[in-house]
């Protein structure tokens, strides 16, 4: 039984402080989000129950549940929610309320690595080496593509292209098709030798300063190269 002799809702208040338009109270308990969420039922929760815990001040449950890592902050609930409640945003805030040591270690690590350069943590030099190595191989083995390019740090190129860290790390040949496409189209593009990763796992740990840090680094790098466009590949 929930005995409500005084309603204390610290978590709710904290979220509302960070997100003035959090709309937690708006919930009509209509159940639309439940039916639209693939994470409904996981860890005994669903978006509506999750909000209800907040509304009724069940702070411990909220801070402990791992449902916040099954919610992928995909915002499909918010998309159709009649009240436009952004449950993803609320989940994000709660992830951030967890002490770092209680967060899923690999997720936090991805972000920590990201803050150094990229999510897999390969050194920037390795990235440059892999790109050049793969390029060399294509130019040698495929005569039709002997003038294929994969420029890095080309100052003043029109387009900047990011590279997901997965390819240079585990499947480098996956980089080639895009190079070929760009070559055929004939645009003037470049990679960067730092802050080249298109991903940003700091989006998911819940610390906005980490997320901002990585984006800022990427932005500075691209602006320094003087590129007019940033092509994101995912």
């Amino acid at each position: 039984m929930i005995d409500l002799k005084g309603l204390r809702r610290r978590v709710k208040a904290e979220i509302e402080k960070a997100v003035p338009d959090a709309r937690i109270d708006y919930c009509l308990t209509c159940g639309l989000c439940v039916s639209g969420c693939p994470a409904s039922g996981i860890e005994g929760l669903d978006p509506r129950k999750f909000l209800r815990l907040l509304v009724l001040g069940r702070d411990e449950d909220i801070l402990e549940t791992n449902w916040i890592y099954s919610c992928t902050i995909c915002q499909r609930c918010r998309y159709a929610c009649p009240m436009g409640i952004d449950i993803g945003r609320i989940v994000y805030e709660i992830r951030g309320m967890r002490p770092r040591e209680k967060r899923p270690p690999n997720l936090q690590r991805s972000c920590d690595l990201q803050k150094q350069s990229n999510s897999t943590g390969i050194p920037n030099d390795d990235f440059v080496w892999v790109v050049n190595d793969v390029l060399e191989e294509v130019r040698e083995n495929e005569p039709a593509w002997r003038d294929l390019k994969a420029p890095i740090d080309k100052q003043g190129a029109e387009y900047y292209l990011n590279q997901n860290a997965k390819e240079p790390t585990v499947e480098p040949e996956e980089m080639v098709p895009l190079w070929k496409i760009l070559h055929v189209v004939g645009i003037d593009w470049t990679y960067s030798s730092k802050w080249w990763d298109g991903a940003n796992y700091c989006l998911f740990t819940g610390d906005p300063e980490d997320w901002a840090y990585v984006v800022r680094k990427q932005a500075e790098t691209i602006d320094a190269l003087g590129c007019r466009y940033y092509i994101n590949t995912e």
């Binding site: 996981i42 860890e43 890592y69 992928t72 902050i73 995909c74 899923p104 690999n106 991805s110 989006l203």
Partner: peptide, 17 residues
């Protein structure tokens, strides 16, 4: 539908979920 891998789910480690 979200694929279920986003939002850090692939890194967070709750594989069954």
């Amino acid at each position: 539908y979200c694929c279920g891998g986003g939002g850090g789910a692939l890194q967070a480690g709750f594989k069954e979920n």
